[in-house]
Design a protein around this nucleic acid. Structure first.
Lengths: 123, 123, 123, 123
DNA sequence: GTGGTCTAGACCACA
DNA sequence: GTGGTCTAGACCACG
């Protein structure tokens, strides 16, 4: 995993975990990698991962048991919420950004379609 | 202007200026506010604005005349490029993000249309 | 400040701050001691205090500004809530504990009164 | 049994046993569950219960006979003391806590009565 | 081995 | 000087 320079690593990992939940890669109640294993894999200090897990736990996204491990939430509802929030955020950000640039709703959809078609020709 | 916590303010201001160029609010060869004026307006330290202007100048987006002030580039081509790069970046990021979440091109457009319609009903 | 052995220091400090808010010692929008000053005063590492402040910030009890300092919440409502929650918690815990020990409501009040009188005689 | 996160489980179980003695649920000289039975019942590791029993024995609250089991103390005086200490601790803690929050003796009793009455209305 | 806490010391961004 | 992040390394509680 490559980290951006201008954002704390632990926040990037939090987002990374939330993304994996949103895409379904991490499933309900699944065991996460141990703090130290993930630290080694991502080449960061174990404290950084511990902080990450604690923030995720505070938000109810994972739960940890001492001496056992850390696990994705058991709440299917929470998992759906993470996914839906993410999608909503992406779409509303997109709409907002293009509007600021002067795009009408119609033009926005047209440009998106054009982009998607263009990719086929280019790729 | 409200700044995010986890990103250097000067980078946010750089983006802010580039956005104003992309939207046409800042025009070709227009004089920018002085470092101290902008600092006061954005409620940040003047050093932060100075840093911002240096970066923008390095990228050829603005240029400075000693004792006179800073100005938006005179190159119409640069201005177009800033705008197009921005749009391309926004669209490709959007497409990429939704694909990661498992969205097909078709569903992506559908959801976007749904979102735009939903706004009308809600707003 | 003396710390108990069987509870993380940062949680004890969180409670310590909340207590000071509840008693009115810390007032609305008041500046807290800096992370490093409090660390020195309490003879703990600055990271421990930083963690404390971050948790308090996540709960909306204080807010921090980089390069400026940390401050008690500006919300009078939040301050009242902290105080009332604390009182409610103390009373309900007391009632519950004595009931478990077989005390009726009447006996509970009698014992409390007896205790308060006894103190006068002893003190 | 639900355990708090921020306190060693064995201390919570010690308190749990002392509470059962204080309430009379565990009687003088009564045989306790075996380490493994209690471990299974409380869903904790048997080492944790073993540790618990060792501490209780050290304090004279229980005693063990090799190959037979563990038993509640035979001293009626010890049992009374556990109960009285507990009650005294609860009351004095309560009084102290509310005083710190600025409550007079009179107000303390009033609030307690109010709380007890309020419960009836709410429950 | 698992998560959690703490220290010491470094560096960064911001004012 | 202020808060925030990160590392390295230690120790603890629990299973």
């Amino acid at each position: 995993m490559k980290f951006k320079d201008n954002m704390p690593i632990y926040l990037q990992i939090i987002d990374h975990v939330k993304l994996k939940i949103a895409t379904g890669e991490y499933k309900r109640a699944e065991k996460l990698e141990s703090v130290r294993d993930m630290a080694q894999k991502l080449r960061v200090n174990h404290n950084t991962i511990a902080k990450t897990y604690q923030f995720l736990e505070k938000d109810g996204i994972i739960f940890s048991k001492k001496g056992v491990g850390s696990f994705i939430t058991e709440s299917e509802e929470m998992i759906s919420r993470i996914r839906e929030e993410r999608i909503f955020f992406k779409i509303s950000t997109f709409v907002n950004d293009l509007r600021v640039l002067g795009y009408s709703d119609k033009k926005m959809i047209e440009e998106l379609e054009k982009f998607l078609k263009g990719e086929i020709q280019n790729g």
